[in-house]
């Protein structure tokens, strides 16, 4: 530290100011601040981009099939809770003033089924109508694979759910290797409207309001979420996105039939089964069966 009193009577010393000591006046300070801010912004953008791209994607085992091929969606495994029987945990939550009913299966695996389902089958934990059925020819809309068998073809709805080897994949792609894999491995596959993909809400053409159902993946858990009241596609999808659902595709809504068994073994059903005969040809469900059912 400089001693300002250290001067003799016969000495002189030009006083040389160091400049304003305030660091904020120095140009290099602002350059450094700018660089740091820019670096932080780039990091945030990079992390956000990574978060958007990562969910639902794993290292691509299908890269050899061509650059244009969609990557494989990350599978969700059944929600196994030790020391508990298979059931559906039902809870309500409110997002954006929309009441969402959440059906989370426990100790149960999903699969597709065709034809009427028996509510008396105690192995079935919950069931929802899956793919839409055309009103004119009663055929299933879009690709539909049942235990490896091709039931229906079409890509009018781009999102899909594939159930292969007990793993559930939900994603949005017209061309996915999972379709072929489902056929090869005797898995299930159906198409529906995308609602939320990689955490982002998707817009869809259908207008109007109805009771909505969605097959969702949230934090690696597959669940079904429905609206309690009639909602538009947009509002429902936005509520799901705000509910932090990573992936969600539509399930047949409106008056579609479904049921679940609660923890108290109580059977809860909804919808209308009276038109089943009319749509028997294409009637299909996604059902969760107890892992102990020996299916």
């Amino acid at each position: 530290m400089k001693d300002y009193d250290n001067i003799g009577d016969d000495e002189i010393r030009l006083i040389i100011p160091e400049g304003n000591s305030s660091i904020v006046r120095k140009w290099w300070f602002w350059v450094a601040v700018s660089v740091v801010v820019l670096a932080v912004i780039l990091l945030v953008v990079w992390f956000n981009t990574r978060e958007i791209e990562s969910p639902g994607l794993i290292s691509n085992p299908y890269a050899h099939l061509g650059a244009g091929m969609q990557q494989k969606a990350e599978p969700a495994l059944p929600n196994i809770v030790l020391n508990q029987s298979a059931c559906a945990v039902v809870s309500d939550t409110t997002i954006n003033d929309i009441v969402l009913r959440v059906y989370t299966p426990q100790n149960a695996t999903p699969e597709l089924s065709m034809g009427a389902i028996d509510t008396a089958d105690s192995n079935i934990v919950m069931a929802f109508q899956a793919a839409d059925i055309r009103a004119d020819n009663h055929q299933i809309v879009g690709d539909f694979i049942l235990k490896g068998a091709i039931v229906s073809n079409g890509k009018s709805k781009k999102a899909f759910c594939a159930i292969i080897d007990g793993k559930t994949y939900i994603d949005n792609s017209e061309s996915t290797p999972l379709l072929d894999e489902a056929i090869e491995k005797h898995g299930d596959f159906f198409r529906q409207y995308p609602l939320v993909i990689n955490g982002n809400m998707c817009e869809n053409k259908p207008k109007g309001k109805s009771i909505r159902y969605a097959l969702c993946e949230k934090e690696g858990v597959i669940m079904v979420v429905s609206s309690v009241s009639r909602e538009s596609f947009h509002d429902f999808a936005q509520a799901l996105a705000d509910f932090d659902v990573q992936q969600a595709i539509y399930l047949t809504g409106g008056n579609s039939y479904g049921f679940c068994r609660t923890e108290a073994n109580q059977l809860i059903s909804w919808g209308d089964a009276s038109e089943w005969d009319d749509y028997a040809e294409g009637l299909n469900f996604i059902v969760w069966k107890s892992v102990c059912s020996g299916k």
């Binding site: 009193d5 001067i7 003799g8 009577d9 016969d10 000495e11 002189i12 010393r13 030009l14 006083i15 040389i16 100011p17 160091e18 400049g19 304003n20």
Partner: peptide, 12 residues
């Protein structure tokens, strides 16, 4: 400021 070099200490 650094440019203000017009003051000189002369002795104590």
């Amino acid at each position: 400021d650094k440019k203000d070099q017009f003051l000189m200490r002369i002795g104590k």
